[in-house]
Amino acid sequence: MRKIRVLIAKPGLDGHDRGAKVLARSLMDEGFEVIYTGIHQTAEDIVRTAIEEDVDVIGLSVLSGAHMYHFRRVLELMKENGINDVLLIGGGIVPEEDKENLIKMGVDAIFNPGTSIQEISDFIRKNLRRPL
């Protein structure tokens, strides 16, 4: 079976990387290959990385409140680049109303604080858009 590749990125300017780092390491424990890009990524950086690394999943962590802007921008660029077989998921502090809008826009899932790693990795395995 091939390795599932996941990009974990922090768009925008907030530096709260605790969750992103814990998730990166925990997904490694689950057998995933995690590409970790660190803080302060632009949407352009993120989509370019997703292409070059041929990832199955893009995971964004935003805690600055600027999630609507960043997700929208990443979705736009994914579309522009014809990326339609990659899951886009997110974590952080996202109000219910925004969450619904993001899902409508095309984000596959938003995980709130307190979500277990197991839940996230199960979601990824079940919803992959590419054959294993």
Binding site: K3, R25, D29, E30, G31, F32, E33, I35, Y36, E44
Partner: peptide, 25 residues
């Protein structure tokens, strides 16, 4: 687990301003 965290790109961020470069971890 056989998994990995691939972090080389963190320090290569500066290269994203160029088109003619391809990085693979």
């Amino acid at each position: 687990s056989g998994g990995a965290v691939l972090g080389d790109r963190v320090r290569m961020k500066d290269l994203n301003r160029f088109e003619n470069v391809f990085i693979r971890s």
